[in-house]
Each structure stands twice: as C-alpha cells, then as structure tokens.
Design a protein around this nucleic acid. Sequence first.
DNA 1: ACCTGAACACCGTTCAAGT
DNA 2: ACCTGAACACCGTTCAAGT
Lengths: 183, 183
Amino acid sequence: VPTPSRTSREEIVAAGRALVEAGGLDALTMHRVAATVGVRPPSLYKHVPSRGALIKLIVEDVVDDLAAALDGRGRAATPGDDLGAVARAFRLFAKQHPGTYRLIFAPLPEEWRADPVHLMAASRAVLTIAAALAGQDRSLEAARTITAWAHGFVAMELADAFRMGGDVDQAFEFGIDHLAGAF
Amino acid sequence: VPTPSRTSREEIVAAGRALVEAGGLDALTMHRVAATVGVRPPSLYKHVPSRGALIKLIVEDVVDDLAAALDGRGRAATPGDDLGAVARAFRLFAKQHPGTYRLIFAPLPEEWRADPVHLMAASRAVLTIAAALAGQDRSLEAARTITAWAHGFVAMELADAFRMGGDVDQAFEFGIDHLAGAF
DNA sequence: ACCTGAACACCGTTCAAGT
DNA sequence: ACCTGAACACCGTTCAAGT
C-alpha cells in the first residue's frame, strides 16, 4: 500500500540549512533533521542518500542565494564603484549567513562539494568587473585576486582572526580602494 | 601507588596533528588518538581536558610552525620582493600541511580557538612588509589586505574552488605583483 | 598518579516489518 | 511507496576500581 510522503527533500534541506546556520556543521545530525521535519531518522534516507549528500544540497542552495545577492545590485558609475558594491554585497551576505557561508569554501570531501555550475554562477559578477578593471585577457587572474581577498577577509572576520585592534570596516574599504587601483 | 605516565601531552598533540593532517577534523577521534599513543580513550583525559582543548593545542602547534616558516627567509632586495617571498612561503606551508593549515582559520567555537599570542607571532613578517610598502600608519590595513588575499587564495585552492581553468600559479604571481604595486 | 573496563547518551546507517 | 523500531558500529566523556 503506497503511503504519501510526510516530508520532502526541500523541507529536509531547509531544516538542515537552519541547523547549520544555528550551530555549524556539527549541529547537522540526521536525528535532529528528522525531528525538525517530524519523521524518524531512517525515513530521511528515502529522500536523501546520506548526510554528505545533504551537506552538498545545502551548500548548493546557499551558493545560489549568494549568486542572487551578488547579481541583484544596480550598475555603478565606474568599475571601481562596481567592485566596491559587489565586495560589500559579498561581505554582507557572509555576515547575514555566517554559519552556512563558511560551508562554501570549507574543505569538504570531494563527493560532498557543490557542483561547479553553482560556483560559476556566483563568479559571474566578479568576472565582469575584473574584465572592466584589468582587461579581458587578464580578467581571470584579476577575478581570482579579488575573490581571494574578499573571501579571505570575511573568513578571517568570521573566525575572529582580526585581533590586533584597528577598524575592520575601514580595513575592508582600504582593500576595495587599493584593489580598484591595482590593475 | 603512583604509576609513571605511559604517554604525554606532546605525544597526544603530535598524534592528533597527524590524524588531522591525514583525514581532516573528522578523523580526529579520541579513540584513534588513544590507539596511536597506546592507551585507552579515558586515559587521554589525564593529559588533555577534552577533544576541543586538543584541537586548540594542535592549532597553536601549527600556527607556531607557520610563524617559523614565514620568518625563516632571507631579506629580499625590495619590499615588493619581500612580499613575494612571504606570500610564496605562506602558500608553500599551506600546501605542505593542507589538513592542519585549514584549521587555522576554521570557524571553531570560541573556547577551541588558538590563543592570540600565536597568531600575532605569525603576523609579524607580513606587518613589517606592509609597513615598508604602505607606510607605518597604513601598515595594519595593508597587512590585512595582504593576509586576506593570501589566505583566501590558498583556502580556495585547497577547497578546489578554482574550477574555471587558467594557470593557478600564474594567478598567484599576478596577485603578488599587483598587490606589491597597490599601496 | 595514571590506567582500565563498564557505562551513558549520543551519532550515521541498514534492514526487515508494518501500513 | 514511505515510515518505523531494532540493531550495529561507532563517537565523547564520566567514574569507580585497579595498580
């Protein structure tokens, strides 16, 4: 006798994402996800192959949101202003979703990593700006320099690694200004 | 009747570091550490308060080695060449110790994070170069820009996040060149 | 003073049995 | 076709008992 699903993959991903956001990857247990969606742990395996596969789905969900946040900005007057706008949008997203942002570049086992398609969508905005700043044939290197700086900055900020005083917001603006003029 | 220790904190930290290096933080279990040093899991608690405290000791050990790697270079001809030398030493360290490098800026719970003293020792080399490049009163911002870029770059590299082709070594040298001229 | 076995409350995952 | 309880092999940690 077929029975209707009592939950869904979407609901499971959303519940898992909330758990990661609230308590990091350690808080993502199949038991807790099951309790959240109102089912017993073994039932989750009818919707998702494993905890690792669930992590992958959560990361892809977050990366898609990041891509939307980076694309959903007006066009600024100069490439330098555009760089400032994406950089600030990037940092804002990380601060608004610290728990799940960290997952994006976390050193996960190969099989749990996001599909490249999602990361490439999130790279589009920076690539466009890099081409405007450094020229088409240097755009990939410039984009990697910008992205590395932006990710490194927010990763260190989220890890509370800026412990020598000073104004962290000001250091971020300093980075924007000097990268905009670097290429 | 007092009995002599069959292991030590140093041995436990070394065993834990090797486990993290080989299999990431997930591989660091008290059971495996105990088996490596030849003792039962409960005995570890005579030498280390908890798994979290062990993680902290491992991170501090790694950060000390990183500081030594960054300091153990000759002085180059120009500040720009010095920047290249530390940056390459930084990246080399990360590639030689990928599993434990990732721990340094990992989003660990507050109580497991390295003591600031260790991180500050590792910051010394970059701060000196930043002062030479950007001037004393901009040295902190410049050091944060450089460190963010370097960490972001190797973090993305270790996470296999550069998936759009191109030469990654060349992108790193591109970053060095343009940061050296940015301040 | 350190080590041990037993125990507790958790995990991820499998599987046969229910509906 | 999905859900469940029972089970297995793991975890971190505590604690009384050994030496």
